[in-house]
């Protein structure tokens, strides 16, 4: 039963990673860049939600919507100001800019909201479902996280595969030049990708801080990197891959915490990243790209 409890909290943590990983994987698929600042968008979303709910006493649902709105705008703004001018630049320059942006968001948050940790109120209270005569307890937030992740996955997959905008996104990720010739507005599509990814990051922020209620300006950094690990694990650019990678990474992390050592759990997660990249660089569900001269 303890094993099952760990497994469920692993799946729950993994669901959050999966939602964050979606932002990475979509942006990587289309803009071919690692958006280092994505983790910090999570943090901004969590702060917006925190202030909306605890200071202005909006209902949690409205808080999350508000956070999604702010993060969507923030994501598009970041893309427009920092990444768009570097579309043609070498990837090293883009990555350094993204790291700079991540630091910028973290330190702006530090100035605005101070480094004192805030206790985040859970968006659904602290209750739990008791199963098997109380032997197995699943907190409401865990249940909500897992179901939110499944819903987001299904809706996003349908969006990508069925709608015109989704088709445009797939075309851009295949070949930007050809997509432009077919009349697709590439810049708008990239902007849309950032918007969706950042909106999802806000949801992830609210869920993450409901499950682990300390909120600081650096809250988003480590989950961000781990979610990137999840995206690579599943195969970058692939949406089901982000889902699978996120869940697996969450379970691995919780098991490492429980059975190996809580201090070394981060090291275990990073070791997974290294092994995956060496053994199967395209990830579990990714496509192996052929390098052309």
């Amino acid at each position: 039963m303890i094993f099952l409890n760990y497994f469920i909290s692993g799946i729950s943590l993994g669901s959050i990673y999966a939602i964050i990983a979606l932002g990475y994987t979509m942006v990587y698929g289309i803009a071919k860049m690692l958006n280092f600042a994505h983790g910090d968008v999570i943090m901004v979303g969590a702060y917006v939600c925190f202030y909306a709910v605890s200071r202005y006493e909006f209902p949690p649902f409205v808080g999350v919507i508000l956070a999604m709105f702010v993060c969507t705008v923030l994501g598009m703004l970041v893309e427009r100001l920092a990444y768009k001018p570097l579309r043609q630049a070498p990837s090293l320059a883009v990555l350094i800019t993204a790291i700079g942006m991540s630091y910028f968001l973290q330190n702006t948050a530090l100035l605005l909201w101070s480094s004192n940790p805030k206790v985040f109120p859970s968006i659904v209270g602290r209750g739990a479902f008791k199963l098997f005569e109380g032997k197995l307890s699943v907190s409401h937030i865990t249940a909500l996280t897992i179901s939110a992740c499944v819903v987001i996955m299904i809706v996003l997959s349908l969006f990508i595969s069925k709608t015109r905008l989704g088709k445009a996104m797939r075309a851009c990720s295949e070949d930007k030049g050809a997509a432009q010739l077919m009349g697709i507005n590439v810049n708008a599509t990239i902007s849309l990708t950032f918007a969706i990814g950042s909106g999802l990051a806000a949801v992830a922020g609210a869920l993450l801080c409901s499950a682990y209620p300390t909120l600081m300006p650096t809250t988003g950094a480590l989950p961000g990197i781990k979610a990137f690990t999840a995206a690579v694990f599943g195969g970058i650019g692939s949406i089901p891959g982000a889902f699978l990678g996120g869940l697996m990474l969450g379970v691995i992390e919780i098991f490492a915490k429980a059975y190996i050592s809580s201090q070394l759990s981060d090291a275990v997660v990073f070791a997974v990243l290294i092994i995956v990249l060496l053994v199967k660089p395209a990830g579990l569900l990714g496509k192996q790209a052929q390098e052309k001269v």
């Binding site: 920092a82 350094i96 800019t97 790291i99 700079g100 942006m101 991540s102 630091y103 910028f104 973290q106 330190n107 702006t108 100035l111």
Partner: peptide, 8 residues
């Protein structure tokens, strides 16, 4: 914050 702005 200054370092971040320098990088960007």
């Amino acid at each position: 914050l200054l370092y971040a702005i320098i990088l960007i």
